[in-house]
Simulated scan of single mutants.
Amino acid sequence: MDCFMSLLSLIGDNIVISNEKHLSVNAALDITCSKLLEQGSIDVTYLEAIKQKHKEIGAYYVLAPKIAMPHARPEDGVNEASLQVTVFKKGVDLGSEDNGDVYFSITLAAMDSDSHIQTIMALSELFQNSNDIDSIISAQTKDEIIEVLKKY
């Protein structure tokens, strides 16, 4: 049986639309992990690991213009495979010189590298579709975001 889970099944209700401006990197990362922490999908050590790695090597998780995928290793504190979608309406400067401000973030919490690869493949398909990315960024409600994500 195929154990592939749709993106939506990993996201559930983990969708945050933030209208905050001038967020610091750490404040933005706090938001990108907020739902996962609330639900216990990750421990605070996972968020700390992302912040620590950012300090060491910069915005490694900013993948393309507008898009970020904060993540650390499963052993850094993942309790349950899950994703959180965060839209930063005003954009956030995470210090990526190549890609500019981030508007759309998917926090990836994977239990192991196998399930991880399936999820990454689905995400990369989404990330390559600039129309869908723009629809997500301009969405006013979680439901509008869910409609777009249903395709993946």
Rank of each mutant, 00 (worst) to 15 (best):
C33G: 12
G12L: 04
L10S: 09
G40K: 05
I15Y: 01
I11W: 01
E20S: 06
S18E: 00
I11D: 05
G12K: 04
V16H: 03
I17Q: 05
S41N: 13
S18L: 00
G12C: 03
L23R: 07
H22T: 14
S34R: 10
N14A: 07
K21R: 06
K35V: 14
C33N: 13
L36Q: 13
S24T: 15
N26R: 15
K35H: 15
L36H: 11
A27E: 14
G12P: 04
E20F: 04
V25H: 02
L37A: 07
N19I: 06
E38P: 02
L29K: 04
L23Y: 08
E38H: 09
S41A: 13
I11A: 02
G12E: 09
I11M: 02
L29Q: 00
Q39A: 06
C33R: 07
N26H: 15
I11K: 06
S18C: 05
L10Q: 09
L37N: 03
A28I: 10
K35L: 15
Q39R: 12
T32F: 13
H22D: 13
N26M: 13
S34Y: 07
H22E: 14
S41C: 12
I17V: 11
S41T: 09
G40C: 01
L23M: 09
L10A: 08
S24F: 11
C33A: 15
I31M: 08
N14I: 07
